[in-house]
Design a protein around this nucleic acid. Structure first.
Length: 592
RNA sequence: GCUGAAGUAGCUCAAUGGUAGAGCAACGCAUUCGUAAUGCGUAGGUUGUGGGUUCAAGUCCCGUCUUCAGCACCA
C-alpha cells in the first residue's frame, strides 16, 4: 500500500493540506498538553477540526493563540511526513503506550484486512488513513477559528470533548477571502438585520419567542396571506382548532412517547394536565373524526396557521429560525390511497411556485426513511416508503435517501434550498402517514358503502413561517421585494411647503391602492431623509420638490437599481401596484 | 441540555480595582435645504440579576438569567 502523500498538483491537495492541518494542530496541542487524548480530526468543507479530550484543561482564546503559535513553529521546522503501517495488535499496543486510548477503539473499528496506517512528523505519530502533505512547511496559510464542545462519537451520553476548528488554504489570498466571507455572512445574519430594520426583538423573559414589531409583522402577514391566497386556488380549507389539549390526545397520537419533554404542560382548573399543542396533526384528526366523510369528500385538505409551542432545549434556540413558538403553513390532506399520487404532484407544483416567487430556483429532495422510534405496522411503512420513492422516480426528481430520519409516523420528503451565499436550508416537507389514521380510527365511506381508512398527508411549504422568514431575510439581505417590504415607497419632500403634496400622494396610494407609502414630514433635511430610506432598505425613494409638483411626477430611485429618473404619478401608481400584485422580484421600472 | 465565551444608555462600542464616557437614535431650539448624516443644546445608567471579597467592584470570586460559537435535539 503506497503512502498517500499529495503534492500541489494533485486535485485533492487542499484536502491533504487541511488533513495535515489537523495533525499539526494535534501535534501542537500535545506539545503544550501532553495529557491530551486525541479522537478524530477530519476535514470539512470549510477546513478541519480535531476532537480532543483535554482532561481538566479548557481551551480558551489564550490557549488557542498558544496552539496556533506552536503550529507556526512546526511549520517552520518543516518536518517530513512519513507513512507507516503496523499489524493490528502491534498498532493497539503502540497507541496504548502513547496513552491514546480513544485510538484503540478506532483501530477496533477498522475492518479486518484493511491496513492500519499511521503518519509521522517529528515526534508526533497519529493513526490516520491520509492523505497528507509531504512536509509540515507546506502548511503556511491557516487559522484556528474557534473551540466548542462535541461528544465522542456524537452521542451525548459519551464523554464531552473539545473541538478545535481551523482552516487552511494553498494561497494567502484564499485565506483572506475566506475570512472576508465569514464577515459577509455575519452582515446578513437575520438577527442583526432584524434589529437594524426594526423587524423583531427578544426579551430575556420570553427566551426563544420573538416580539414581531409593526414592520416585521407586515412582512410576516404578507407571507401568510400569500399562502392563504394559494390555498383558495389549490382547494384547501382553513380551520382554527384548540391551542390546549388534555394530555390524552398526545397519548393517543403517540407524540407523548417521544416528545413529552418538549411540550409545555400545565394543570387546568380541575388539575388535569393540559398541553400547549406542539403540532396540529392530532387536532386535525379529532376534527376529521367529528363527522362521517364519504369518498366524495376526499381529498380533504385542512390547513391551519395556529401558533405551536415547543419547549426546545435552550442551546437549540437561534434567532427566529429556531424558536419556542411558531406558526407553520401546516395542512393535512385526508385522501384515499389512489389519490396520493395526484396530491403529491400538486404539492410539487405548489412548492415550486412559492419558491420561484421568493427567488429560490433550485431545490434538492431527501427521502427520509423510518426512524428507530416509530409507530405503525411495518407493512404500512413498507407501503409508505415505496410509494414516496416511486413518486420521485416517476417525476424524475433526483433525490437522496436519508435512512432513519423520517417522522415517527411516516417517511417524508425534505426540500432543501440554497440561499444567496450557498448555504443549504431544509424548508418544505411532505410526510405520508398511515399510522395516525389507524391510531385515531379515521374512516370514510367508500363507493361500495363500506368503511375504509384514509391516508393522511402532512405537508408544509415554508415549514415554519418564522424559520422561512429568517432564512429569506438572510437570502435577500434585508432588501425585500416590493410586495413584502414594510415601506414600499419613501417620499422625501425638499422643503416644508412640499409636505402637503407628499402627504396627499401617500394618502391616495395607501388608501386607494392599499400600498405602503411613507411621506417623511418629520424634522430634518432631505439628505438625511434619503439616507434614512436607504438604511431602511426601502425599495423606492422619491424626492419631491417644485418640479415634481408642477408636473405631477416623482423622481424615483432604488437603493438596489439606482436612478429611474422622473416618472409621472400615473405611471408610478400603475407600476407599483402591478409589481406588488404579481409579487415581482424585479422592479417593473427596469422595463419600459 | 452539554462545552466554551460574552452581557455597560434604545443601537454600536469605550473605561490599570479608584468620580461610568463617546457616536448614532430620542427630545428641545434654530435652519427650509434637490438625492446617504444642518448646527447648537437637553435628557438618557442600581454596568442582566442575586450574593461575596475589598477602604473602594463595570473590573476579582460564586450562584442565576439571557445571548453567542459548536455539539446533541428538531414531531
Amino acid at each position: 500500500m503506497p503512502a498517500k502523500i499529495k503534492t500541489s498538483s494533485d486535485a485533492d491537495y487542499r484536502f491533504a493540506l487541511r488533513h495535515s492541518g489537523a495533525h499539526i494542530m494535534a501535534q501542537a496541542v500535545l506539545r503544550h498538553y501532553p495529557q491530551a487524548k486525541l479522537t478524530v480530526g477530519p476535514v470539512t468543507d470549510e477546513g478541519f477540526f480535531y476532537d480532543i479530550d483535554m482532561g481538566e484543561v479548557t481551551i480558551g482564546p489564550d490557549e488557542l493563540k498558544k496552539i496556533e503559535d506552536e503550529m507556526r513553529k512546526i511549520s517552520k521546522e518543516n518536518l517530513p511526513v512519513e507513512y507507516l503501517e503496523m499489524p493490528r495488535e502491534e498498532a493497539k499496543l503502540y497507541v496504548k503506550k502513547l496513552g491514546q486510548t480513544y485510538k484503540v477503539e478506532l483501530i477496533n473499528q477498522i475492518p479486518e484486512g484493511e491496513p492500519i496506517s499511521f503518519y509521522r512528523q517529528g515526534e508526533f505519530t497519529d493513526l490516520c488513513e491520509g492523505p497528507h502533505i509531504a512536509r509540515t512547511g507546506e502548511l503556511k496559510f491557516f487559522k484556528l477559528l474557534n473551540v466548542s464542545g462535541a461528544y465522542w462519537k456524537g452521542d451525548q451520553n459519551n464523554a464531552q470533548l473539545q473541538r478545535i476548528y481551523g482552516t487552511a488554504f494553498e494561497k494567502k489570498e484564499q485565506l483572506q477571502e475566506y475570512l472576508k466571507m465569514i464577515e459577509e455572512a455575519k452582515k446578513r445574519d437575520h438577527r442583526e438585520l432584524g434589529k437594524k430594520l426594526d423587524l423583531f426583538s427578544f426579551h430575556p423573559w420570553s427566551p426563544g419567542i420573538p416580539f414581531m414589531h409593526p414592520k416585521g409583522t407586515i412582512v410576516y402577514n404578507e407571507m401568510q396571506d400569500y399562502i392563504r391566497e394559494l390555498y383558495r386556488e389549490y382547494d384547501y380549507r382553513e380551520v382554527i382548532t384548540p391551542m390546549i389539549y388534555d394530555e390524552a390526545l398526545f397519548q393517543q397520537s403517540g407524540h407523548l412517547q417521544g416528545f413529552s419533554e418538549f411540550m409545555f404542560k400545565m394543570p387546568d382548573a380541575d388539575e388535569h394536565i393540559s398541553c400547549l399543542k406542539p403540532m396540529n396533526c392530532p387536532g386535525h384528526c379529532l376534527y376529521y373524526r367529528g363527522q362521517l366523510f364519504s369518498y366524495r369528500d376526499l381529498p380533504l385538505r385542512i390547513a391551519e396557521f395556529s401558533k405551536l409551542h415547543r419547549n426546545e432545549k435552550s442551546g437549540a434556540l437561534h434567532g427566529i429560525t429556531r424558536v419556542r413558538a411558531m406558526s407553520q403553513d401546516d395542512a393535512h390532506i385526508f385522501c384515499t390511497e389512489d389519490q396520493i399520487e395526484a396530491e403529491t404532484a400538486s404539492f410539487f407544483d405548489f412548492v415550486e411556485r412559492v419558491y420561484r416567487t421568493f427567488g429560490f430556483e433550485k431545490y434538492d429532495v431527501k427521502l427520509a426513511l423510518r426512524p428507530e422510534k416509530r409507530v405503525g405496522r411495518e407493512e404500512l411503512w413498507d407501503l409508505a416508503e415505496s410509494t414516496l420513492q416511486k413518486m420521485l422516480e416517476q417525476r424524475k426528481v433526483p433525490f437522496e435517501l436519508a435512512p432513519g430520519e423520517g417522522a415517527f409516523y411516516g417517511p417524508k420528503y425534505e426540500f432543501h434550498i440554497k440561499d444567496a451565499i450557498g448555504r443549504s436550508w431544509q424548508l418544505a416537507t411532505l410526510q405520508l402517514d398511515f399510522a395516525l389514521p389507524e391510531r385515531f380510527e379515521l374512516e370514510y365511506v367508500g363507493a361500495d358503502s363500506h368503511r375504509h381508512r384514509p391516508v393522511m398527508i402532512h405537508r408544509a411549504i415554508f415549514g415554519s413561517l418564522e424559520r422561512f422568514y429568517g432564512v429569506y431575510l438572510e437570502h435577500c439581505e434585508g432588501y425585500f421585494p416590493t410586495w413584502l417590504a414594510p415601506i414600499q415607497l419613501y417620499l422625501v419632500p425638499v422643503r416644508e411647503d412640499h409636505f402637503k403634496f407628499v402627504e396627499e400622494v401617500a394618502e391616495s396610494l395607501n388608501r386607494e391602492l392599499g400600498l405602503r407609502v411613507y411621506a417623511d414630514t418629520e424634522e430634518g433635511n432631505m439628505g438625511g431623509k434619503v439616507r434614512k430610506a436607504n438604511v431602511a432598505r426601502v425599495p423606492y425613494v422619491a424626492v419631491v420638490g417644485d418640479k415634481e409638483i408642477e408636473t405631477k411626477s416623482l423622481a424615483i430611485k432604488s437603493p438596489k437599481n439606482g436612478d429611474f429618473g422622473v416618472k409621472t404619478l400615473a405611471e408610478v401608481r400603475e407600476k407599483l401596484l402591478k409589481e406588488v400584485q404579481i409579487r415581482s422580484l424585479e422592479s417593473l421600472f427596469l422595463s419600459n
